[in-house]
Each structure stands twice: as C-alpha cells, then as structure tokens.
Amino acid sequence: MNVTEVSFVAAAAAVANGKALPAIGQTPARYAGHTFETGADAPDRPGVFVLTTELSGRAHPIYVGESESVIVAVSAVLAANPILKRLTAGVFWQACPFALDRRHLVEELIEEYQPHFNAAAEAEKSDRSSERDDWVRDPIELIARF
C-alpha cells in the first residue's frame, strides 16, 4: 500500500469510528478533543503541530510533532522529507509551553490518528534498537545475566 492508500484507509477508519476531521483551513480545528489553530505562518513558540493532507476536503493527520519553536520544526520536517512536503496541505498547531504536556499530547494524537509518517519513524527507531544485542528490554532478563 502506498502513502495515499494508507491515508485513505486511515481517513475512512476515522470517519467510521466517529472521529470527525476538520476541514482544510478550518480554525479553530479539533483533534482528539484539543483545539488547534491554522493560518499562513506557524508561531515561533513552543507547541505541538499536525501536518495534514486533504482527503475529501478534510484535514487528515499525516505527521504529528512538537518543538520549542513550531515554525522551525515544521520547516525542518518538511525540508527533510520531500514526500511529506508534497503531501502536506495544511498545518495546525497548538501553543504549549511545557515539554511534558507536549509529549503527552503528541502521544495521544499519534495513538488516536496513527499518522503514516509517525508510524514510519517509530518502525525505524525499533529497527535501530533491535540491532543492539546488549540492550535488555526485560528486567528479569537483566537479573538473569548476573
């Protein structure tokens, strides 16, 4: 399945589960019960951002992130991934000064919407961690080594 097919499947699943997605450009927009803004420029403040693609006029999340500067992070993510840049139709953000709150919100949004590009990043991280033979995931295993 390519990125577009994955996004269409995810959008259909969101509608089936009663998760209404906001329209492209709608402000304020709601994702997982949280209010997000949109506009020409994201702020140079700490916050959470949602990159979306347009599917049937709705803003479907394809990447969720957080940073000390939303505009810097959005620019860096789009510059690093040309496919993501091409698919992005809208950027939604929420100012959030506290790192822990941002991390929890990102985790909640990823769990709720399962954005394609976040799933790819998680798969890459797990592939890297599995290459480390000395890494112990289970405390019982660690105790057994000694």
Rank of each mutant, 00 (worst) to 15 (best):
M1G: 14
N2F: 07
E5A: 06
V6R: 06
V6S: 09
V6P: 00
V6K: 05
V6W: 04
S7K: 01
S7N: 11
V9T: 13
V9I: 10
A11F: 02
A12V: 06
A13M: 08
A13T: 03
A14Q: 08
V15E: 06
V15Q: 05
A16P: 01
A16Q: 05
K19C: 01
K19R: 13
P22W: 00
P22M: 00
A23L: 09
I24G: 01
G25N: 08
Q26S: 05
T27H: 02
R30P: 01
R30G: 09
Y31V: 14
Y31S: 12
G33N: 06
G33M: 02
T35A: 13
F36C: 08
F36P: 06
T38I: 09
T38H: 06
T38S: 13
T38P: 04
T38D: 04
G39E: 03
G39V: 10
D41Y: 14
D41F: 14
A42I: 06
A42Q: 15
P43I: 07
R45L: 11
R45P: 01
G47V: 03
V48T: 09
V48K: 01
F49G: 00
F49A: 04
F49W: 06
V50L: 03
T52R: 00
T53H: 01
E54G: 07
E54L: 02
L55R: 07
S56W: 07
G57P: 02
R58F: 02
R58H: 03
H60S: 01
H60V: 08
P61F: 09
I62W: 08
Y63W: 10
V64Y: 07
G65P: 10
E66G: 11
E66Q: 15
S67K: 02
S67I: 01
S69Q: 09
I71T: 15
I71V: 13
V72Y: 06
A73H: 02
A73V: 00
V74S: 03
V74Y: 08
S75L: 10
S75N: 12
S75G: 13
A76Y: 11
A79W: 05
A80L: 07
N81L: 02
P82S: 14
P82D: 12
I83T: 15
I83F: 11
I83M: 12
I83A: 15
I83D: 15
L84C: 10
K85Y: 07
R86Q: 15
L87P: 08
T88C: 12
T88V: 09
T88K: 06
G90H: 04
G90T: 04
G90I: 04
V91D: 03
V91N: 04
V91F: 13
F92V: 09
W93V: 11
A95G: 11
C96H: 10
L100W: 14
D101C: 12
R102A: 15
R103T: 10
R103V: 09
H104Q: 13
V106N: 08
E107A: 11
E107H: 11
E108L: 14
E108N: 11
E108K: 10
L109M: 12
L109Q: 07
Y113W: 04
H116S: 13
A120W: 08
A120E: 12
A121G: 09
A121R: 14
E122M: 06
A123P: 03
A123V: 07
A123N: 07
S126I: 05
D127F: 02
D127A: 10
D127P: 00
R128P: 00
R128A: 11
S129H: 03
S130I: 12
R132V: 10
D133R: 08
V136P: 00
V136D: 05
P139M: 02
I140R: 15
I143G: 01
R145A: 12
R145E: 12
